[in-house]
């Protein structure tokens, strides 16, 4: 398997180089999507299926859709000019130097404290019984380091609010020409499957690889499919249901942490008997919020509606 791994590493480097030296923006985007897929494969090889799922769903899938959507709404001829190579001009040279220095510093930092990193992982595994879920990654994300995950949800919401405040700086043609529309049969065939897989991933997060972020991204993919097949579209107005669902993840997470302070005496500590149902509740509300935020980032609008509805 060493040969396969070496080939994978080599391909990753080549594709990364291709991303920054592609002849046009579109080629760079395509190289970036393929890079994401191979990165997911590398995480599988490194036995980190959670990261592989997240990378495939968010890194290669949704990020690719967002980049292609942006490219599509660029004015004609824009983005076709050649991207300067790292040594052509002061700015690319500065960025390249900065990135290289960062990479070297990160490598040094990683190699300085390997024992401590291993220790915290073992400590988490020791406490797994108290976490209410059988999957170590989910236990760390939702219980031991719940605060980080809550802030991540906040970052995603902030990104969405920031995008909406920009009020679509690019002229966005929401009316796709009929020819580039996906056939409606595709949605009818795939939607039940995608919904099943998305919900399963959220549920499975408790005992096997999966979780709110991976499941949420797959559910967002179902939404993108609905828009591309012409069943739904972005809406300029939003309703309170949508807002409630968007804020739901962060709200449920915070409320569960706050309301149980009198019982447990600490923020985001959960009583022994209730920990599993609370985890599942948090996981599902997070997944819905993540799915909706990602979908709205794609449409670039505050709301959604059925196509043709006013």
């Amino acid at each position: 398997m060493t040969a396969l791994d070496s080939l994978l590493a080599l391909l990753l480097l080549l594709l990364a180089a291709r991303c920054v030296s592609a002849r046009s923006l579109l080629q760079a985007i395509v190289a970036f999507i393929v890079l994401g897929l191979l990165l997911a494969l590398s995480w599988v090889r490194l036995e980190a299926p959670d990261l592989a799922l997240a990378e495939a769903a968010i890194g290669a899938g949704l990020l690719g859709v967002l980049l292609l959507g942006t490219w599509r709404s660029l004015p004609l001829g824009h983005g076709n000019e050649r991207i300067p190579l790292p040594w052509q001009g002061l700015r690319p040279a500065l960025i390249t130097t900065g990135c290289t220095v960062l990479a070297v510093l990160l490598t040094v930092a990683l190699h300085q404290h390997p024992e401590q990193a291993a220790m915290s992982g073992l400590a988490a595994l020791d406490q797994l019984d108290a976490a209410g879920v059988d999957q170590p990654v989910t236990a760390v994300l939702l219980n031991f380091r719940a605060y980080d995950t809550l802030l991540e949800m906040g970052v995603l919401l902030m990104a969405l609010i920031g995008t909406l405040m920009l009020d679509s700086p690019l002229p966005r043609d929401t009316e796709l020409p009929a020819r580039t529309m996906l056939p409606a049969t595709l949605a009818q065939l795939f939607l039940p499957l995608i919904l099943l897989i998305g919900l399963y991933l959220v549920w499975a997060g408790a005992y096997s690889p999966g979780g709110a972020f991976q499941g949420g991204a797959v559910l967002a993919g179902a939404g993108v499919l609905l828009i591309l097949t012409g069943f739904g579209e972005g809406d300029g107005r939003d309703g309170w249901v949508l807002r409630a669902l968007l804020a739901g993840g962060a709200l449920v997470f915070t409320l569960a942490g706050l309301l149980l302070i009198p019982v447990t005496g600490a923020f985001m500590a959960y009583p022994q008997g209730l920990v599993t149902p609370i985890m599942v509740l948090i996981e599902f509300s997070l997944a819905l919020s993540i799915a909706l935020s990602l979908l709205l980032l794609y449409t670039g609008t505050p709301g959604l509606r059925r196509r043709g509805e006013r």
């Binding site: 020409p177 020819r179 580039t180 996906l182 056939p183 595709l186």
Partner: peptide
């Protein structure tokens, strides 16, 4: 589906 889309676009 991807093949159909690409061919349709090329034809267009």
């Amino acid at each position: 589906v991807a093949c159909h889309l690409i061919a349709g676009y090329a034809l267009q």
